[in-house]
Design a protein around this nucleic acid. Structure first.
Lengths: 112, 112
DNA sequence: TTCACATATAAGCATGTATTGATATATGCA
DNA sequence: TGCATATATCAATACATGCTTATATGTGAA
């Protein structure tokens, strides 16, 4: 990707870093690029929830929810707090909420 | 999705609107959830580019780039300005840039 | 009109991903 | 220990997506 150097402050290390950033960035957006997962994230932006509650909210099977939570966890979009048998999920950091809000703003502008 | 009503200000119309928003939101994030497309968007955040220039920058075939641009266009992430035979692409609105920056911030926090 | 160039679209293959159903782990309680 | 609950993982199927090759559209120039 030498042709991208002009965008990466000219340094090779910066170019490589950018490449890695792009890959992670794409994975992050992809994790949010699913109707089920984006609803999970949105629900979690209102507060902590356990797996069972998410299943009920989204009317989805437990394995499917666990699978999605794993995807979100892998990208550090959500985090778990285990309490006995119950796993409580919440957003991992404040950027996630900002990201969601920016996205909603764009989509709502798009609709109206 | 009646179980989601508590999140939509109690009104049925709001619940339906939210459902539509979620679908569009997921599609939008999905459009950004590809390494090639997110690089295109990032490149366009630096300024307008024609298809040919994007092909060179990303070292991708012209049909592949056109295909991605179509995806981005459909979700109003980029827009075209035709000038003779040349199509000039740019970001459609300022939210796109904000979205990208929020994403990069999250990913860079994640790495460090 | 005819040619060349810039971009767009189509068909096909290869890979990736979401969902389901079954099963595994792990905790709490009797 | 034995059982029920909460969550995680696995295997298989079905569907979606990216890239390539080939072709089409559309514009400008000769």
């Amino acid at each position: 990707m030498a042709s991208l150097n002009q965008y990466s402050a000219g340094k090779r290390s910066e170019a490589l870093k950018s490449k890695r950033v792009f890959l992670l960035l794409a994975e992050t957006f992809q994790a949010l690029g699913d109707s089920s997962r984006v609803q999970i994230v949105w629900a979690l932006s209102k507060g902590e929830l356990c797996v069972n509650e998410i299943c009920d909210l989204l009317e989805m099977s437990q394995p499917a929810v666990s699978h999605h939570l794993r995807t979100l966890r892998n990208l550090k979009l959500v985090r778990v707090r285990r309490e006995g048998r119950v796993s409580h999920y919440s957003l991992d950091d404040s950027h996630i909420d900002s990201l969601l809000r920016e996205g909603i703003t764009h989509v709502e502008d798009m609709i109206s």
